[in-house]
Write a protein that binds this DNA or RNA. Structure first.
Lengths: 146, 146
DNA sequence: TAAATAATGACAATATATTGTCAATAAGGT
DNA sequence: ACCTTATTGACAATATATTGTCATTATTTA
């Protein structure tokens, strides 16, 4: 006797497909939005994380849900482009603090306008509460999927 | 005067972050599920698309929302591993039909049990209707984001 | 039917991301 | 203090995915 998916299992499977597609679409949109600033979705995300707080690479990875090494690679690229710098971390000799430079902050700020316009446009015609509920469900599934 | 994100725009931005994280978690889960069959998330997805219908590489890409070349690469790998074959397509001399071999079908079937168990387990404790609503919202956003 | 346009796979370059290993450092438990 | 365990960045190998170009084949349009 084989295990069958129940209604919940089917729903999760459909959520999986929807997530893959939406992920691709969001990445494409992000690349379009960030291209004029010389960035990409991935670099924008890492740089954006550093807008308010200096953080270690490992910390960024945890916050973003990516592997440490993926973020490390991006951070090294950003450092080479002088969008971030690494500051000594008094709390850990290994893990320096990544910190956005003025140039990096400018790059992010120049994106904000386009990002806001895109996000607002994308949301038009959809009940915001609906989207917020969807996000809550996704967070639940995220925890349960592990 | 700069454009500010409204509630909908904020919601879409949060959806974006949730989508990225869930995408990563689903890929990790998929790799775990498919590893015992010698597959990965990506290969499983392409192979799975061919369970019922033979399709061209371009067709698979459209269905999956990936680039043509990404699917082409995976399909070539699957062909090399004898999990799919390319059949002549009477309708198009360029685009052969990718078709799952018996070996490929067996690989997918051996995954089904584990996938069902995972999907059911992931869904437990969450109202299926909630997940279904979330999927509908994501589809709406997918269309709007382009 | 002829010509313009689009779709397709091959090929290549590049970006993104995971996994694994290693040595250095940190953190926790005894 | 000591020892075990965990975290971290460097390095490397590999998988995933996009973008661009090209020649070939299909499709649409005039």
């Amino acid at each position: 006797m084989t295990t069958k998916r129940n209604r919940g299992g089917d729903a999760v499977s459909n959520l999986l497909l929807a997530t893959f597609k939406l992920n691709g679409a969001f990445l494409a949109a992000g690349d379009k939005i960030s291209a004029p600033s010389g960035l990409t979705s991935a670099r924008w995300q890492v740089l954006g994380t550093l807008m308010w707080d200096d953080m270690t690479v490992s910390g960024i990875a945890r916050e973003m849900g990516l592997s440490r090494q993926a973020v490390q690679r991006i951070a090294n690229v950003l450092a080479k482009e002088n969008l971030i710098t690494f500051l000594d971390n008094p709390n850990d000799k290994r893990a320096k603090l990544a910190s956005a430079t003025d140039e990096g902050r400018k790059a992010i700020q120049s994106l904000a306008e386009r990002q806001h316009a895109w996000a607002n446009a994308t949301a038009t015609g959809i009940d915001p509460a609906e989207i917020e509920r969807a996000v809550e469900v996704m967070k639940k599934v995220l925890v349960a999927s592990k």
